[in-house]
Design a protein around this nucleic acid. Structure first.
Lengths: 300, 300
DNA sequence: ATAATAGTGTCTTTCAGACAGTATAGT
DNA sequence: ACTATACTGTCTGAAAGACACTATTAT
């Protein structure tokens, strides 16, 4: 290409004289929401343990938000692909490589970080609890799993001339054997004509750093949504699993109870029966299944 | 907060001494995929015109990719929210404020821009063609609508030990009365165990700048997907519309023909009949409908 | 009358939801 | 035998797809 622009400069010359530092640039980070589903303690030997949804959080050892919980993450290097940065952080925190991860959303409000202008690209990762092995972080940070729960505590609808504004306040609870934190996120859905806009705002936060409470809420919604129409929930279960176990995972993700026959019919295309069975259980042992990679209709 | 970190510094002191310029930072841009559905020329007076899906593109007036087509967009200022930057660009290009827009994906490969490290946050906007009014850009850029078509030209499946790799090559065609451009994007879906990863790669590009061909493909897939289970397609139609018109929009978005009775049943909850009818048409005039804002089940 | 689309009624098939009932392990 | 879960069969009702049929306008 030897085209010349209206200043009489060729492409090579243009690129040579280009100066990226003309303007100040925002910093870019990745933040990871790493989900697992673990079994609760068996209270009754006979009863099947139910599942809990948990996420990996880090107790911050430095300013800002020192002592608060934050999502694992860090700055993206100038010479590093964003996705590579996300995988790097995942590896650092959990020592896992090859798990389900998807980009969620990019948070770009000007004042989300008190240090400087920081844009955060968030990712959601799903790990089966048998693999998860939290790394002992450096002394500045302690990582731990926390159970997540989201509860709608208030809803409000205001009718406007051309539509309405629907607000709901969601409390995010993060708890451990030792600790308990929570935040309230206001979610506003503005319908005006045919346009809908959704906005998340952290209203109160006890011990949850930055705007991470809203990132957690967003990821919960995405996980729930995708669990309805994709095979995403299989990533939360070990390689061999029973259908009851899978059902319990679906129940905790979707936040509702399911009927076994309907559930079995629905997922029957996505699983393959193995010859193995559960062992040493005080009841009829259930068959172990594995994921059927080829279940999808598209892709011959 | 008067906590002191392990260097004996309080939060105020920490923030005061924080230097964001320690490391070089990437530049951040927003790129917009602005869709419209327009009627094709009426060849036959009697026949109903079919719809075409179009996107707004800019012919670049400067290096790099001078003369190529690019998505409208620009750099995000350090003091500007990302979303605000997207709305600003939309306004500059189309003079429209209040339309449907959603964040799509953030593209973070290191070498996507020859100038410097540029991370692009892409947005999808939907405009009804009766409103769209392209602004005369500055002399460095010409904006115009181009019809989009995506065609799968080749598919391939390779079985691996723990799964398979499914690749498809998609040709993106952008055309106008005057011009015609195209690119080939390779889409790779890697299934390994329970993990699926999808990757997009521009293989050939005739006159489409940067990696914008893959952003366009990604947005087409998202639009199609969302049209199936949301009311997103209503944004491509004027405030008052006939059901046939709406159906034609769905057909062009989904890329397949629909049966009228099934279609009417499906969208009946989302529309409200008005008293008005089409005028001056050489056939039975159809009733005009408007969008029913309150159709959604959630939100009381 | 004719061309062309607007719009309705109804049949079939598919699938989710509900529930009753049978099977099988350990204790 | 009993308990708790594993697993299956079948009914019902809602929704999607297919098709035939009627309605209404300008020319």
């Amino acid at each position: 290409m030897s085209k010349i622009n209206n200043q009489g400069i060729t492409e090579e010359q243009f690129l040579k004289q280009y100066n990226a530092d003309k303007y100040p640039q925002p910093s870019v980070t990745v933040d990871l929401v790493i989900f697992t589903a673990t079994s609760e303690e068996k209270i009754n030997q006979r009863k099947l343990p139910s599942k809990e949804l948990q996420i990996l959080l880090i107790e911050r050892g430095d300013h800002p938000f020192m002592g608060s919980l934050a999502l694992p993450g860090g700055f993206v290097n100038v010479g590093e692909n964003i996705e590579a940065a996300a995988y790097r952080e995942l590896k650092e925190e959990t020592n896992i490589d090859n798990i389900y991860m998807e980009q969620l959303y990019t948070w770009g409000e000007v004042n989300r970080d008190p240090r400087t202008r920081v844009i955060s690209v968030s990712y959601m990762a799903l790990v089966d609890s048998s693999i998860l092995n939290i790394q002992a972080g450096d002394d500045a940070a302690r990582a731990a799993l926390f159970s997540v729960k989201d509860t709608v505590i208030k809803e409000e609808k205001i009718n406007t001339e051309e539509g309405h504004i629907f607000s709901s306040w969601v409390r995010i609870d993060l708890s451990n054997e030792e600790e308990k934190y929570s935040a309230i996120v206001k979610k506003t859905k503005t319908v005006q004509g045919r346009t809908t806009r959704t906005d998340y705002q952290v209203e109160e936060s006890e011990g949850i750093a930055f705007d991470h409470a809203k990132i957690i809420l967003y990821s919960l919604e995405r996980l729930r949504n995708k669990a309805e129409y994709t095979d995403i929930a299989f990533s939360l279960v070990p390689e061999l699993f029973t259908l009851s176990e899978l059902q319990k995972v679906y129940e905790v993700v979707l936040g509702k109870e399911l009927l076994a026959p309907a559930f079995r019919k629905k997922i029957s295309h996505m699983v393959i029966e193995t010859n193995e069975k559960e062992k040493d259980v005080p009841r009829r042992p259930s068959t172990l299944y594995k994921f059927n990679q080829g279940w999808t209709k598209n892709g011959f």
